[in-house]
C-alpha cells in the first residue's frame, strides 16, 4: 500500500474545524504536545511502515517550498 493522496474524507471542513478547535483549546506550547499525541495515535493506527515513511518524507519535502 502507498500513501493515499486523493481525498479520503467525507466531510473535510468539519474534520478540519474539529482539529483546529482541539488544538486551540490548549495554550500554544500545550498545543504542540496535543498535536504530537494526535500524530502518534494516527501513526500507530496506520501501522504500515512504508506508508508512514512516505508520509514523513512528503511532509519534510513540503516544508522546504
Amino acid at each position: 500500500m502507498s500513501l493515499t493522496l486523493e481525498t479520503n474524507l467525507e466531510d473535510p471542513d468539519a474534520i478540519y474545524e474539529k482539529l483546529i478547535a482541539m488544538l486551540e483549546s490548549h495554550e500554544p506550547e500545550k498545543a504542540l504536545r496535543a498535536s504530537a499525541r494526535l500524530v502518534l495515535l494516527l501513526i500507530n493506527h496506520i501501522g504500515d511502515r512504508k506508508v508512514i515513511d512516505e508520509a514523513i518524507e512528503r511532509a519534510a519535502l513540503l516544508t522546504e517550498a
Binding site: 504536545r33 500524530v39 502518534l40 495515535l41
Partner: peptide, 23 residues
C-alpha cells in the same frame, strides 16, 4: 522543544494506550 513535546506526548499516552508503551 519539538523533540520534548513528542517525548512528553508518548508519556501522556503510555498509561492508557498500550501502543505508546513500546515508544
Amino acid at each position: 522543544d519539538i523533540s520534548r513535546a513528542f517525548r512528553d506526548a508518548v508519556l501522556d499516552l503510555a498509561e492508557d494506550h498500550p501502543f505508546a508503551r513500546a515508544l
